[in-house]
Write a protein that binds this DNA or RNA. Sequence first.
DNA 1: TCATAGTATTGACATCAGTCAATGTATTGG
DNA 2: CCAATACATTGACTGATGTCAATACTATGA
Lengths: 114, 114
Amino acid sequence: MSRPKTIAVDETVVSCCGPLSSGAMSELEARDMAQIFAALSDPARLRMLSFIASEQEVCSCALEGPLGKSQPTISHHTRILVEAGLIAGEKRGRWMWWRVVPERLDVVARILNG
Amino acid sequence: MSRPKTIAVDETVVSCCGPLSSGAMSELEARDMAQIFAALSDPARLRMLSFIASEQEVCSCALEGPLGKSQPTISHHTRILVEAGLIAGEKRGRWMWWRVVPERLDVVARILNG
DNA sequence: TCATAGTATTGACATCAGTCAATGTATTGG
DNA sequence: CCAATACATTGACTGATGTCAATACTATGA
């Protein structure tokens, strides 16, 4: 088997914004945060995320059944979660393995209860 | 002036869901949570929320200017934040005063870093 | 190199969501 | 009661989003 291609977590993804109550938010900051929340605003993605979070790693192939969505739709949703920095993937052989990025979830949590 | 009509915070709004990693999420639970995140997924609403959070109370009339949106749009967004349980309003005289519901923000935060 | 399997991408479609002008509702002051 | 003010609602438009069938890409095993 080929060497695993690790998909690194972008450092800039793990800290971006102060707590909500720290004054009026800039338009730029608001756009960034909105993108994260938008990724969390779909039921299918939330179920994906909770499923991945409950295991250590989950293969894409293991998501179609439980979610009841087609393969392209699963792929679409994983991409959106990746772009929001909420999950990271690693391709091993033919399979794509997904895991959550807990630091990213912490960022969002800190924004909310600041 | 007439008696203030306090808009109470629904108790059921303050606790609904366990942490993400506590197993596969049900479709129903996912829909509920998705609604909250959807409310947070718009830049204008995030700026509104942070503005309200940074003051104690904010009048609707004080939101149009900073956000650069029309009055109907402001009203639209406040409604969505209310329906998500994130803010609560009280009408005093002609003015509508908004405040955040910190317990609700805590709920979301706990879901994420569970 | 060829067939197969797992994923990603593209294209199309239907639905949803943000926006504002126009209008409706409720409260205050005269 | 009337005019003015603050906010809500309606209707219409536009752009974004979730979904899947069809297709392309890539790694494996024979």
